[in-house]
Amino acid sequence: MFMSKNEPVSSPEALLQQIDTDRPLPPLEQWNPDFCGDIPMRITRDGRWFYQGGEIRRPAMVKMFSRILWKEGDRYFLKTPVEKVGIEVEDVPFQVISVERTGASPECLSFTTSTGEQVVAGKVHPIRVELDPLTGEPSPYLLIRYGMEGRLQRNVFYQLAEWAESHRINGRQVWTVSSEGVQFNLGEG
Results as ranks from 00 to 15, higher is better:
Lys71Pro: 02
Pro27Met: 03
Asn170Ser: 15
Val177Arg: 00
Lys123Trp: 04
Phe65Ser: 04
Gly103Gln: 03
Ser139Leu: 10
Leu143Gln: 08
Tyr146Cys: 07
Ser179His: 00
Gly54Ile: 12
Leu28Ile: 14
Lys5Pro: 02
Gln52Val: 09
Met1Thr: 13
Gly189Gln: 04
Lys84Tyr: 10
Pro59Met: 11
Lys84Ile: 06
Asn170Ile: 15
Gly181His: 10
Phe184Cys: 13
Thr80Trp: 08
Leu143His: 02
Gln95Lys: 02
Thr115Phe: 02
Val89His: 05
Gly147His: 03
Pro26Tyr: 00
Ser105His: 00
Gly103Pro: 06
Val82His: 12
Met148His: 07
Arg172Ile: 14
Arg145Gln: 03
Leu15Asn: 04
Trp163Asp: 03
Gln118Gly: 12
Ser66Val: 05
Phe35Trp: 11
Tyr141Cys: 14
Asn185Met: 10
Gly187Gln: 04
Ala104Gln: 01
Glu100Val: 13
Met64His: 01
Arg45Trp: 06
Ile97Arg: 04
Gly53Met: 06
Val174Arg: 01
Gln183Asn: 14
Gly54His: 14
Val119Lys: 02
Gly136Leu: 11
Arg172Asp: 07
Asp38Phe: 13
Trp163Gly: 05
Lys5Phe: 15
Lys71Ile: 11
Glu137Asn: 02
Asp74Met: 11
Val85Ile: 11
Leu28Trp: 08
Leu25Thr: 04
Trp31Val: 06
Lys63Asp: 13
Phe2Gly: 02
Asp34His: 02
Val174Ala: 10
Arg45Phe: 15
Thr44Glu: 05
Trp31Ile: 07
Leu25Glu: 11
Tyr51Ile: 12
Val120Thr: 08
Gly86Tyr: 09
Ala60Gly: 11
Ser10Cys: 15
Ser139Phe: 11
Glu165Arg: 04
Ser4Pro: 07
Ala104Thr: 13
Leu109Asp: 09
Gly103Val: 15
Gln17Pro: 00
Tyr146Lys: 03
Ser178Gly: 13
Ile39Leu: 08
Pro133Gln: 01
Lys71Glu: 01
Gly136Pro: 12
Arg42Tyr: 15
Thr135Phe: 14
Pro93Ser: 05
Ser66Asn: 00
Leu152Ala: 09
Phe157Asn: 03
Val89Asn: 02
Ser178Ala: 12
Ser178Gln: 08
Ser114Asn: 13
Glu55Ser: 11
Tyr146Val: 10
Pro126Val: 04
Asp91Met: 12
Gln52Asn: 05
Gly171Cys: 13
Pro59Tyr: 05
Glu90Val: 15
Glu100Arg: 12
Glu137Arg: 01
Glu7Trp: 15
Lys84Cys: 07
Leu152Glu: 04
Gly53Asp: 09
Gly37His: 06
Ala60Lys: 04
Trp31Cys: 05
Lys71Ala: 09
Lys79Phe: 08
Leu142Thr: 08
Val174Leu: 14
Ser66Glu: 03
His167Thr: 11
Phe77Glu: 00
Asp22Asn: 12
Arg42Glu: 13
Pro133Glu: 09
Asn155Met: 03
Val174Ile: 13
Ser166Gly: 15
Leu186Glu: 01
His167Cys: 10
Ser179Ala: 09
Ile68Ala: 02
Gly150Cys: 07
Lys63His: 08
Phe2His: 02
Gly86Pro: 00
Ala121Met: 05
Gln95Phe: 00
Gly171Asn: 11
Gly189Leu: 14
Val156Asp: 07
